[in-house]
């Protein structure tokens, strides 16, 4: 009788214990999931830049790079003090283009490709213009986005 009882006790304890552990196995990932990650929300196609116009101005070439999705963009200040953003990947062989305020162009050093301030390919090997990004300035903050064509 007592053997029966202890067996029953063991079964109950084992069941209760493993049920508790199973709960832990289910709730641990859930708890981890709801704990906000370092970067608390998704980066949207409208990207908030981590620097301001003043930061770009202080660069010797008046331009900074930003990461947009899987590609890289360049944002620069034109002669007329406008902010412009373009894809920084040369359309010839994917080198990174740079702003040349002295020449008034964007320049790819790999094969001397030249683009106008609007991204048009003006000389050298580049077969296509650079893709333009939309720039929006709200106070100190700069937002860049791809044109969403379907809305």
């Amino acid at each position: 009788m007592s053997g029966e009882k202890s067996r029953r006790g063991f079964l109950e304890a084992a069941l209760g214990g493993s049920a508790l552990l199973a709960m832990a196995a289910i709730f641990y990932p859930m708890y981890q999931y709801i704990t906000p990650p370092k970067l608390a929300e998704a980066k949207l196609s409208q990207l908030k830049l981590s620097f301001s116009r003043a930061d770009i101005e202080s660069e010797p070439k008046k331009a900074k790079y930003f990461k947009y999705g899987r590609s890289m963009g360049i944002i620069f200040i034109t002669e007329t003090n406008e902010l412009k953003a373009l894809s920084a990947m040369c359309t010839h062989l994917d080198c990174t283009v740079q702003h040349r305020p002295d020449l008034g162009i964007l320049w790819c050093s790999c094969h001397n490709g030249r683009y106008g301030m609007d991204g048009s390919n003006i000389s050298g090997p580049p077969p296509r213009p650079l893709y333009p990004y939309q720039v929006k300035e709200v106070g100190e903050t700069i937002f860049v986005s791809k044109e969403i064509a379907d809305e």
Partner: peptide, 14 residues
């Protein structure tokens, strides 16, 4: 799309 990508790449156990 960006938020789903965020869930699977950045959120723990996302």
């Amino acid at each position: 799309y960006e938020s789903v990508q965020f869930i699977v790449s950045t959120v723990s156990f996302g």
